[in-house]
Amino acid sequence: ERVRARYDYEAQNEDELSFKKGDIITVLEKDDGWWKGRNGKEGLFPSNYVEELE
């Protein structure tokens, strides 16, 4: 599954994923509120910062 970033997100910890608004992220795992994904790097990000691609 792929999602698009709705906002910029700056990683707060080294296991998190940074991205810019409009970036496409491949979702690897979904957990409550935090998803694991890849966009060149791999890490956790808040699920409310992304939207599913149509």
Results as ranks from 00 to 15, higher is better:
1 E>D: 12
1 E>W: 15
2 R>T: 11
2 R>H: 11
3 V>T: 05
4 R>L: 09
4 R>W: 05
4 R>S: 04
4 R>N: 04
4 R>Y: 05
5 A>P: 02
5 A>Q: 02
5 A>F: 00
7 Y>C: 15
7 Y>E: 10
8 D>S: 10
8 D>C: 09
9 Y>E: 00
10 E>I: 13
10 E>Y: 13
11 A>N: 03
11 A>Q: 05
11 A>I: 02
14 E>Y: 09
14 E>S: 12
14 E>M: 10
15 D>S: 13
15 D>H: 14
15 D>Q: 13
15 D>E: 13
16 E>S: 03
17 L>D: 00
17 L>G: 00
18 S>T: 11
18 S>L: 01
18 S>K: 01
18 S>I: 01
18 S>W: 02
19 F>R: 00
19 F>Y: 02
20 K>P: 00
20 K>E: 06
20 K>F: 09
20 K>R: 13
21 K>H: 07
21 K>Y: 06
21 K>W: 05
22 G>R: 04
22 G>E: 03
23 D>I: 04
23 D>R: 03
23 D>P: 02
23 D>N: 06
23 D>Q: 08
24 I>Q: 04
24 I>M: 09
25 I>D: 00
25 I>H: 02
26 T>E: 14
26 T>P: 04
26 T>K: 07
26 T>N: 07
27 V>A: 04
27 V>G: 02
27 V>L: 09
28 L>T: 10
28 L>D: 04
28 L>V: 10
29 E>C: 14
29 E>D: 12
29 E>Q: 14
30 K>I: 06
30 K>S: 05
31 D>Q: 15
31 D>L: 15
31 D>T: 15
31 D>Y: 15
31 D>K: 15
31 D>R: 15
32 D>P: 08
32 D>R: 10
32 D>L: 10
33 G>P: 10
33 G>R: 13
34 W>K: 07
34 W>P: 01
35 W>L: 04
35 W>C: 04
36 K>C: 10
36 K>Q: 05
37 G>F: 00
38 R>Y: 15
38 R>D: 09
38 R>C: 10
39 N>G: 09
39 N>D: 05
39 N>S: 11
40 G>V: 12
41 K>Y: 09
41 K>C: 08
41 K>L: 09
42 E>F: 08
42 E>K: 06
42 E>T: 14
43 G>M: 02
44 L>A: 08
45 F>D: 01
45 F>G: 00
46 P>A: 05
46 P>G: 04
46 P>Q: 07
46 P>K: 07
48 N>I: 12
48 N>F: 12
49 Y>G: 04
49 Y>Q: 06
50 V>K: 02
50 V>Y: 01
51 E>H: 07
51 E>C: 09
51 E>T: 08
52 E>W: 11
52 E>G: 12
52 E>P: 15
53 L>I: 14
53 L>Q: 06
53 L>V: 11
54 E>G: 13
